[in-house]
Amino acid sequence: MQDLNVAGTDSIPSIQANWASGRLEMKGDSYPENAFELYQPVIDWIEVFLKTENRPLLMQLQLLYLNTSSIRAMMDMLDLLEDAHKQGKPVGVTWLYERDNERVAELAEEFREDYTLRFDIVPQE
């Protein structure tokens, strides 16, 4: 499977999926015109990784604003990781936020609710 590399803009986050290191990083705002088009390759990438590899997969997020369809896509990705976690696979999520923007942390906590996988919300200076 190829790595994914999407350059971020004002309306979409930068997306880097690295197969070798088992890391998926997304950073920025997300209000794309077509969230399905943007995130389906990422969802596919996660699915293939989880199906073919037993190595750890870490998703690192540093997201600010998400529109409704991006929230939905994000939850689809988190659901995939949660299912993998329930099957005993080593997966985890880290959500980074700037310390002075507590509201982002609160939103990350909303996302974390209901999941049992490792989901860290980490402040940055």
Binding site: N67, M75, L107, E110, E113
Partner: peptide, 13 residues
């Protein structure tokens, strides 16, 4: 459940 959660998070945004 997912829809309810999406709505809740969306409202917060």
């Amino acid at each position: 459940r997912q829809i309810a959660k999406v709505m809740r998070i969306s409202d917060r945004y």
